[in-house]
């Protein structure tokens, strides 16, 4: 708060002050959401407008895919083992039969874990990466230099990252699904002695699962780069500003993924699975 604001707040009545304090909480949130929507709508406007820097799109796809592949594989690999470990012991205790486990696990991977956990990991890896990159361009005035040369920063920087992210999030989600299913199968086979052929069971998969999987991957792929770019473009100050931007990117992106997951899971339940 600046000195003037402090003086202004001090002059209010207690009731007024309580109302004003609500603003302290909500105004920054609303400002940030509007700014994210602004960046998002501009990015979509420019995504359908020529010229698109296809070389840059390819390069960004390589960066996103290459930089996150090992990370996503490690995390989802361990997740697969954890999930089968936990559910295996419980299933043995309650149901006593592990034959249906593979089919259920595959369904759950499609609907929930593969796209969402991949997106959470991309929010940390790609989200912080984009925010740091664009943020340091802002604080070193490179973004101003772009604007002075009539290169719109959102068209020049955000659109290639958006297009690359949409494709690579889907690809990485597919990779994640295979890895998590593979490690889960490994644990089921070694710890619980479930036959590989029994575990690999697609009987419970429906079109709805594939649709929800694709919808989630698409939504996350769009949201993460836009939120991260907004955080980067809003950076100010020196290295401190870049630090704040990256923190903001990972928090906002993870939160957005969780909210989208909630909404899309609800939609999926109502339309396909109930």
């Amino acid at each position: 708060m600046t000195k003037h604001t402090q003086a202004y707040v001090a002059a209010l009545s207690p009731t007024q002050r309580r109302i004003a304090q609500l603003g302290v909480v909500f105004v920054p949130i609303v400002t940030q959401i509007t700014d994210i929507l602004r960046v998002g709508s501009l990015a979509f406007y420019y995504a359908f407008k020529k010229p698109i820097r296809w070389r840059e799109v390819l390069q960004q796809s390589f960066f996103i895919g290459n930089r996150s592949l090992a990370f996503v594989m490690i995390v989802l690999g361990f997740l697969g083992m954890i999930l089968i470990f936990q559910s295996g012991f419980q299933a043995k205790r309650i149901v006593g039969d592990l034959q249906g486990m593979g089919a259920l696990y595959l369904q759950l991977l499609f609907r929930e874990f593969a796209p969402t956990v991949t997106a959470l990991m991309l929010a940390t890896r790609v989200g912080t990466g984009i925010a740091a990159e664009i943020g340091s361009m802002v604080v070193t005035e490179q973004v101003d230099a772009l604007r002075m040369n009539n290169a719109e920063p959102i068209q020049y920087l955000v659109v290639p990252r958006l297009l690359a992210s949409i494709v690579m999030t889907f690809v990485l989600s597919c990779v994640a699904l295979c890895v998590a299913f593979g490690t889960g199968m490994f644990v089921a086979n070694t710890v619980f002695e479930v036959n590989v052929a029994t575990f690999y069971n697609t009987s419970l998969l429906e079109w709805g699962d594939l649709i929800i999987f694709s919808l989630k991957a698409l939504a996350y792929g769009i949201t993460i780069p836009i939120i991260a770019s907004q955080a980067g473009l809003a950076a100010f100050g020196g290295s401190e500003g870049v630090g704040t931007a990256t923190t903001m990117a990972v928090v906002n992106a993870s939160l957005a993924v969780t909210i989208l997951d909630f909404v899309l899971s609800g939609v999926g339940y109502i339309f396909f699975f109930s």
């Binding site: 990370f71 490690i74 995390v75 361990f78 997740l79 083992m81 954890i82 470990f85 936990q86 959470l120 990991m121 940390t124 890896r125 912080t128 990466g129 925010a131 740091a132 990159e133 943020g135 340091s136 604080v139 070193t140 020196g238 290295s239 401190e240 500003g241 870049v242 630090g243 931007a245 990256t246 923190t247 990972v250």
Partner: peptide, 28 residues
């Protein structure tokens, strides 16, 4: 400088996420 701070944050969150899942597996 500023670029280095961004890179550090990136490494930090990635390493934390990997450690969380790896530790979880071994504890489980």
């Amino acid at each position: 400088g500023a670029v280095g701070v961004g890179r550090s944050v990136n490494n930090s969150v990635v390493a934390s996420a990997v450690l969380i899942f790896v530790l979880d597996y071994f504890i489980t």
